[in-house]
Every structure is written in structure tokens, then in C-alpha cells.
């Protein structure tokens, strides 16, 4: 009988995340802001709301971290770009939970993201504005509206910069929709935690 050997199974999905080497507060701010922005882009593209995010948390058995709307709102409110006071700190486990939720949702929208990127490629090569198509035009409008609605005015970039940010986040989301998207996003966040 041939031996059968099983690989060690991590007891939790985020045990295997490489941990940042104690980032400074300003670097943590980058992580928190970026996580919130990626989710904002997903909201703008798909129109999904907190229900979908909570359902994803449930699917991934993360309800002990993101159990209800208030918990979700508090996590996202940790972004330094957000309006409001009393910002909550975001610990590593919570950040990892948001990463998993984001990429789970991105995978669910993989086809839409692929279509959006293909369209963006086509328009860019033709030298046309992304706004000329419904899919990208709606996305950019939604992103801009959500950004202005939720973020502190002092952090609002110029319209062109906001468009560039939205398109960059769309490309990011596309790559996060891959099976290893959560690892990509986490590593990208750690990159932002570099001094």
C-alpha cells in the first residue's frame, strides 16, 4: 500500500499571511486607506452594498470579526481618509478578514472585471475616454460620487487624479479576482507598510 501523506492544513485561513514587521502608525494608515479604497471600487463597479460583504464574511466564516453592519462600518471607518471622528484601530486579523472578503467578492465578479479591463484596454489603445462606455462611465461616476460622499474633503484629489485612482483600483481588482488574489492584495498592502 503506498503511503498517503497529507499536507498540514492551516487551522485558520489567515494564519499563513506573512505578518508585517510592526509597521509604524503612518504605514498602518496606508493599509487601512487602501483596503477601504479597494472595497469602494468594488462597490462602484458592482453596486454591491454591505449585505454582500456580510454574506461574504459569512461564507468565509469570518462573522466573529465582521458580524454585522456596525462592525463592518467601524472597520471601514478606520481609513484615515474617511470623514468623521473616533476612528477605530484596525488590527491585523481584521485587516486580513477584509482582504479575504474583498477578494472573495472580486472572484464572484471576475467576469465583469475581465470585461471592464478588456474594454479599458480597447478604449485606451484607441485614445478614447473611458467615460464613453456605459460600464466604465458608470463605474467612474459611482466611484467619484462615493469618494466625495465618504471621504474627508481635505483628502479629495483633483478630478483627473481621482479618475486615475479609480482606473488603477479597477486593474488591481482584476488581479485580485484570481484564485491567489488575497495573497496579492495582502502583499500589496504590506508593500505600503514599508517605511
Amino acid at each position: 500500500m503506498p503511503p498517503t501523506v497529507k499536507s498540514p492544513v492551516p487551522s485558520s485561513p489567515w494564519e499563513q499571511f506573512p505578518l508585517p514587521p510592526s509597521p509604524a502608525p503612518t504605514q498602518l494608515d496606508n493599509i487601512k486607506a487602501q483596503l477601504d479604497l479597494v472595497l469602494l471600487a468594488l462597490e462602484a463597479l458592482v453596486g454591491l452594498g454591505s449585505d454582500a460583504m456580510l454574506q461574504a464574511a459569512k461564507d468565509l466564516e469570518l462573522t466573529h470579526l465582521v458580524g454585522d453592519r456596525v462592525a463592518l462600518w467601524r472597520l471601514r471607518q478606520s481609513s484615515p481618509l474617511r470623514k468623521g471622528q473616533g476612528r477605530k484601530r484596525l488590527d491585523v486579523e481584521e485587516a486580513q478578514a477584509l482582504v479575504l472578503i474583498t477578494c472573495h467578492l472580486a472572484q464572484q465578479q471576475a467576469e465583469l472585471l475581465r470585461r471592464a479591463i478588456a474594454l479599458l484596454e480597447q478604449l485606451t489603445q484607441q485614445g478614447e475616454e473611458p467615460h464613453r462606455t456605459a460600464l466604465l462611465g458608470d463605474y467612474l461616476d459611482n466611484f467619484s460620487n462615493l469618494y466625495e460622499e465618504r471621504m474627508d474633503e481635505t483628502h479629495t484629489p483633483a478630478p483627473d487624479q481621482l479618475t486615475h485612482l479609480a482606473l488603477k483600483l479597477l486593474i488591481d481588482l482584476f488581479f485580485y479576482s484570481a484564485p491567489n488574489g488575497a495573497r496579492r492584495l495582502w502583499l500589496a498592502l504590506l508593500d505600503r507598510a514599508k517605511p
Binding site: 492544513v9 492551516p10 468565509l60 477578494c103 472573495h104 484564485p179 491567489n180 488574489g181
Partner: peptide, 8 residues
Amino acid sequence: ATSLQRAA
């Protein structure tokens, strides 16, 4: 990557 893929 494997574990994340499984988790997702």
C-alpha cells in the same frame, strides 16, 4: 496561496 485559495 494554497490556503487562501481554499479559504476563498
